[in-house]
Design a protein around this nucleic acid. Structure first.
Lengths: 236, 236
DNA sequence: TTGTATAATTGTACCGGTACAATTATACTA
DNA sequence: TAGTATAATTGTACCGGTACAATTATACAA
C-alpha cells in the first residue's frame, strides 16, 4: 500500500474512531506532517484523497475540517458499484441465478468493445442488503480477461476476486442511469408489481489500461435504494 | 484563473477541437511540460484534474489517453447539478413559478443548518432542455448569504450570479437520490400522469467554508432524464 | 517463428523548498 | 463598543529534483 493511501486510511480511521462531526477541526498540516512522519506533499496528497472521498474539506487560512452527511439510510452510490468491498456495517448477500459462458448479444458486445464471437461470462444475481431485496443484476465479463468464475466467487465479491487472484487493476467506470417501470420478470425477482417504478443503472467497468471488462445492468428496488453522492466542485 | 486550470482547459479544448476518441494518445508528459511551459508538478496537476473530470486516463509506462463515453443522449449528472453553467450544446430554459422570501419549514431549516425564524428565498421552477420538460425544482437559499434574488436572475443561472456578483465560492454538495411516484401537482408541471415513476434528488450545496447555502429538491421527468456518471476508483 | 531476457520509455511516489492568498486573531483607533 | 488596520496562521500553487514501477520496444536465443 502506498504511503499516502496508508496515511489517508489512518486519518479516516481516526475520524471514525473519535466520531468527529461535520465542521470539527483536524490538526494543522505541519502537525499531521510530523505526526505521520511524511513530507508535506505526501500529507497533502492524502488529504486530497480524503477530500475527493467526501471525508474532509480544506479551507486555506483556516484549517482542515471533517465533512459528514447526516442521513443514515442512504448508501454511497459508488460503494454499491463495486468500489468498496464493504457497505460499512450493512450485510450484503446474493442469490446467484446464473453463472455461465455464452456469446454476447450485439449491445453487450458493443459496450464491452468485443466481437459477438468472443466468449463472455454471464452472471445473474439478486442482491440483498440486511436481508431486504436490493436489486436484480445481470452482468457480463470478458472471458479473455476473467477466464474463470464459479458460484462461490460470484456469491461473494467478484471485484475482490478479480483484483486479488487475477492481479488485474480496475481503473474507471461509466455509469448510465435512467428511471422506468419494472417488467414482469424483474418484478418477480424484486417482490414488486409489474410497472412499479425503478432505477436502472448500466455500468461499464474498465481496467486501468482502459479496456472494458465488465458490463452490468442493475435494476433497483425503488423502496430499498436510496443513494448519496458527495460531489466536489465546480471543477474549473 | 490558476495556471494548472488554464492548462487543463487548453488540453481539453485541444481534445474537443481535434475530436479525439477514446484511447487516442496525447503527447508525453515531458512534451506537454515544454509545450505549455510549466513545471512537471503543474502539468501533473492539470492532468489529474482532467482525469477526475473523466476526460483522460493515465497509464504509467505507457502514456496519457483520451477517455470518452459514447452515449450522446446522456447528460452528466454533475453538469445538471449547478456545477457547469452550460450543458454543452443543449439549451436550458426555465419557467419561474415563484421567487419569494419566507420562513423555512423544519426540514428545510435542518438541511440548511439554520433556524426556522431565519429568512430564506424560495425559488420554484420548471426547467426545460431543448424545449422538453426536464424537471420541477423547489429550492431554498439562505438569505443571510444570498441577500437578493429576482425573476431575471432566477430565470438564468443562480449559481453564476452567486459566484459572480456576490463573490462567494461554492465548495461541495451532498446529493440524496431516490425513486418514487409523482404526486398530482408534480405530474401537472411535468405533463405526466399521477403515480408515474420519477427520480427525486435533494441537494445541499455548501460554500467553500462549509456553510450550507442552498437546499433544493428536484423531481425529474423520467423519460427526459438520463444521466451519466464517470467514476474513478477504487479510491483506496 | 516464438518465446525470453534486456533496455528504453513513461507516468507516479515522495522529498523539500519558496511565495502567496485567504482566513483569523490582535492591536489600535474613534 | 465597534470598526479598522496589522500581524500571525494556515493551506495551496508552483518550482525542481530523485527513485521507481509498469509498460513497451529491442535484441537475442531456441
Amino acid at each position: 500500500m502506498l504511503k499516502y493511501q496508508q496515511v489517508a486510511a489512518e486519518i479516516e480511521q481516526y475520524i471514525n474512531q473519535k466520531d468527529l462531526k461535520q465542521g470539527d477541526k483536524l490538526p494543522v498540516l505541519e502537525q499531521l506532517m510530523s505526526q505521520y512522519a511524511v513530507s508535506k506533499s505526501t500529507i497533502t496528497k492524502a488529504l486530497e484523497l480524503l477530500e475527493r472521498k467526501g471525508v474532509i474539506f480544506q479551507l486555506r487560512g483556516s484549517g482542515i475540517f471533517v465533512r459528514r452527511h447526516n442521513r443514515p439510510g442512504y448508501m454511497s452510490l459508488f460503494s454499491t458499484q463495486g468500489f468498496k468491498s464493504n457497505l460499512g456495517d450493512r450485510a450484503l448477500t446474493s442469490d446467484v441465478l446464473d453463472v455461465s459462458v455464452t456469446k454476447p448479444h450485439t449491445t453487450v458486445a458493443q459496450n464491452l468493445g468485443i466481437d459477438v464471437t468472443d466468449d463472455v461470462y454471464r452472471v445473474e444475481r439478486v442482491r440483498f442488503v440486511d436481508g431486504e431485496v436490493f436489486c436484480y443484476e445481470e452482468s457480463y465479463y470478458v472471458k479473455a480477461i476473467v477466464p474463470y468464475l464459479n458460484r462461490e466467487i460470484v456469491a461473494d465479491s467478484i471485484f475482490d476476486y478479480v483484483q486479488g487472484a487475477l492481479g488485474v487493476t480496475i481503473g474507471f467506470s461509466d455509469m448510465y442511469m435512467q428511471v422506468g417501470r419494472l417488467t414482469a420478470t424483474e418484478a418477480g425477482y424484486l417482490g414488486l408489481q409489474t410497472d412499479d417504478p425503478t432505477l436502472r443503472i448500466e455500468t461499464i467497468f474498465h481496467l486501468s489500461n482502459g479496456k472494458p471488462f465488465d458490463y452490468s445492468r442493475i435494476t433497483y428496488h425503488f423502496e430499498h435504494s436510496q443513494f448519496v453522492v458527495q460531489a466536489n466542485g465546480p471543477f474549473m
